[in-house]
Amino acid sequence: MKVQDIVEALGLKVCSGSAGLNREIEGGYTSDLLSDVMGNADENQVWVTLQTHKNIMAIASLKELAAIVLVKGYEPEADAAKQSNVEGIPILSSTEEAFELSGKLFELLKA
């Protein structure tokens, strides 16, 4: 499944990094603690979080994540969006909360 597929299936907004919409997704991780994500997420996963600052892109880039999904309608800060465009790692946004979004994402990815 590609990032574009979850954008369509879950009605996500593409905030930045649209060049990476064809990245392949191999799972997901939900957490707002950066060290937790750094220590436990794996490459090609989608990261669900409410953090919107630039450091989420440092994590996404170092861990080679497929995309970041912000919850509750949050949008990335300007420097985070800029970095997302540079790296080609999309930042997406959902109006849903982390619990609901993670559940739907899980259902999509286990299929």
């Binding site: 603690l33 950066l34 060290s35 220590g39 953090q51 600052h53 450091n55």
Partner: peptide
């Protein structure tokens, strides 16, 4: 508030 400072840094370093 930024999601740092959870007390996982040095343990993560040791593990990795």
């Amino acid at each position: 508030e930024m999601g740092f400072g959870a007390g996982m840094g040095l343990p993560n370093i040791k593990k990795n």
